[in-house]
Each structure stands twice: as C-alpha cells, then as structure tokens.
C-alpha cells in the first residue's frame, strides 16, 4: 500500500561559511512512513540541533532533502502536480511553536478560520461555513463566544494554539505535524492543548507527529517515539518502553535530566564520560561517543546500526549489538508491525 507520507532515506545538509563549505548534517539517512490505516501519535524528541525541526520542515515540504525523497501518496514532494499539491496541502497540516506568530494580529480570529474554508471551498454557504467553524472549535474544547469576534491578543496562549489546531482540523487532514506546540504555553494551560491533540487521534482518526524537547508531554500523548541525536536516530519504539527503560545512553541521559516535580526525588549527577570518550572522532564512529559513559572500542570505528532490543523498540548502540539488526529504512516496520499486535492505550 502507498503510504500517506513517506520519508525515503532522507539526508539534509546545511552549508555555511565561505562557499558553503562548512557542512552541517541536520538529519541523516532517515526513513519513515505514515500510513492511514491506524491513527498514531509519533513523538520526535531531541535536544536543540538534533534535527527534529528540520525533519518537520522536510516532511511538510518546506525544505528539500539533500539526498533521498519525501513522498506524498507515492509522489515526490518536489514534483507534485497542482491537484496533488492542493490535496497535500489539505491532508497534511502543521501547527507551529509560537501561536502568536501564526496569526495576523490585524485580523480577528474568524478570518483565520474562514480563509481555509474559502480557499479549499469547504462550504457551500455562509451558514455551512459557520457550522464547520463551530464544530472545529468545539472539538478542541473552545467556546465560540470566547473566541469568535476576538483579536488574537485577546486570547491566551492555550486558546490561540487551540485555534490553530481547530484551523488544521477544518481541512479534515490525515496528518498533523506539530512542532513544539506547547513549549510556549503556560503550565496550567498546556493540558488543554495536549487534550485537543489526543482528541484528534481518538475521535477524528488523525495521525500526529509531535515534535518536542519535552519527554514528559511526549510520554503522555504519544504511542511511539523517535529519539534523535545530532540528526541520527538514537532510539525508536513504544513510548512507554523508551521512557521507562531507555536502552540508548543518550536517552538515559535525557530521562535522568528531567527535573522531577518532587523535592524528595533529587536529580542524579550526570554520569562521567568513559575514558575512551576523549578519543572519539566526531567524523567517525558513534555520534554520542564523546559524551557516552559506556563508550568502548567499537563505538570509535563506525556509526552503530539499529539493534532491535525487543519487538517494540530498537537502539543505535553497540551495547546491544547482540540483538538482531534492523535496517534504518525498516524502522517504520518495527512501529507498524508492533502497532498491530497490541491495541494502543487510549488514555483520556
């Protein structure tokens, strides 16, 4: 079956400096498929510079991959026909970090919601258009009387971000790519946005790629998770497995660095890098070796493959080299195959 959206072995290299000779690999050899059969929320986490936002932009067609291709229903994003492009723009939606920047502050919120209806001719009459807007707002838990007729600055960050989700929802998409949708929203309002995102999956059958640096919210709403480190997949699999029992030393570092809201569970000290870490060559070997407390001989020679440590997860780390390998372009199969065997936990 043709995937809705497929990243086929994509690499993105940014050049900088004189003649663009300093190359930064933002994302390397990344493959992923999103099917329409079952809606899933896939988290993508990593520190700044890990390539997570680059990945979002590549999937949305806002950047072109240096190598490989992103395909929408089998067609390369670079060569879509007009009809295909219109369909892509409708089926794949984006929600960005700053709910202020996405608005034109001179227009009322209504304008934001009416524009897609007009552009995509979603409604035959004004009344129908209004009904669509009411439905979309209701789905994300907003009351029309406190959103419509207002200017963006009159709404809270949580409300603005939910208007963005409602706008995406109007187009009846199959996939929403959300890049740090809650990181600028206050703690007491974050839950409102996260709940709206869950509703998309559970009630509207929309898949979501949730990009964040916050492992805690990812754990709460995702089915699967991909941990990126410097453009490379460090660990991938079922979110509960990855968060509760991380296999890659980088994921372990991430999980242990999260400040727990409990004064009696104090942060542990960051583990010291291994003695070999100092000799790690950044151009060769595991990208994490220079910081890794477990680095040993093999880590310095080549980038490790994905080792499938269990049915629902794989990690690119030589500590697990006894496990069967998983080709990078089969990562999605691990998620797909796995998602078939157990029903996702619908927590609400």
């Amino acid at each position: 079956m043709t995937a809705l959206l497929e990243a086929d072995d994509i690499t993105k290299i940014f050049g900088s400096g004189v003649g663009r000779r300093i190359e930064t690999v933002a994302l390397r050899d990344f493959s992923f498929r999103i099917e329409t059969t079952r809606p899933l929320i896939t988290g993508v986490v990593g520190e700044s510079g890990s390539g997570k936002s680059t990945m979002a932009r590549l999937l949305l067609g806002l950047e072109e991959p240096t190598k490989g291709a992103v395909r929408y229903r089998g067609a390369d994003l670079r060569h879509l026909s007009n009809t295909q492009r219109a369909a892509f723009r409708r089926e794949v939606q984006a929600v960005f970090q700053d709910p202020f920047e996405s608005f034109n502050s001179f227009y009322k919120v209504d304008h934001m919601l009416e524009t897609p209806i007009r552009k995509f001719k979603l409604a035959a009459s004004k009344g129908e258009a209004h009904q669509l807007i009411l439905n979309a707002l209701g789905a994300v838990g907003l009351r029309p009387e406190e959103t419509l007729g207002r200017f963006p600055h009159q709404l809270s960050g949580g409300q603005r971000q939910r208007v963005m989700v409602a706008r995406a929802l109007l187009l009846n998409p199959k996939l929403i790519v959300a890049d740090e949708p809650v990181s600028m929203i206050d703690a007491s309002l974050r839950a409102t946005v996260l709940t709206a995102l869950r509703t998309l999956r559970d009630e509207f059958g929309i898949s979501l790629i949730y990009i964040t640096h916050d492992l805690t919210t990812a754990f709460q709403i995702c089915d699967d998770i991909i941990v990126l480190y410097r453009g490379y997949v460090a660990e991938v699999g079922d979110v509960t497995k990855v968060v509760k029992d991380p296999k890659h030393p980088y994921t372990q570092l991430l999980v242990s660095s999260i400040p727990r809201p409990d004064p009696d569970r104090q942060w542990s000290e960051e583990p010291e890098p291994s003695a070999l870490a100092g000799t790690a060559n950044p151009d060769k070997g595991c990208l994490f070796a220079a910081r890794c407390p477990h680095a040993f001989e093999p880590c310095l020679r080549a980038i490790p493959q994905l080792y499938r440590t269990d049915a629902r997860r794989a990690a690119t780390c030589y500590l697990h080299q006894d496990a069967p390998t998983l080709a990078l372009d089969q990562m999605d199969e691990l998620l797909m195959a796995a998602s078939g065997e157990t029903e996702p936990q619908v927590t609400r």
Binding site: G158, D186, A187, T216, T217, Q220, V243
Partner: peptide, 23 residues
Amino acid sequence: RILMESLPSLDEKETLQVVKGAP
C-alpha cells in the same frame, strides 16, 4: 494545587487535568 495537578507525570499515562479559564 491546580498547578501541581496539571503537571504531566513521567510515571504513568494519565488523564490530563484541564484547568478551566485562563489567567
């Protein structure tokens, strides 16, 4: 109290507490 309750947990998947209204 509401701030404490709206904290997402890393221990178990749970219902997210939604606080009504906005500051």
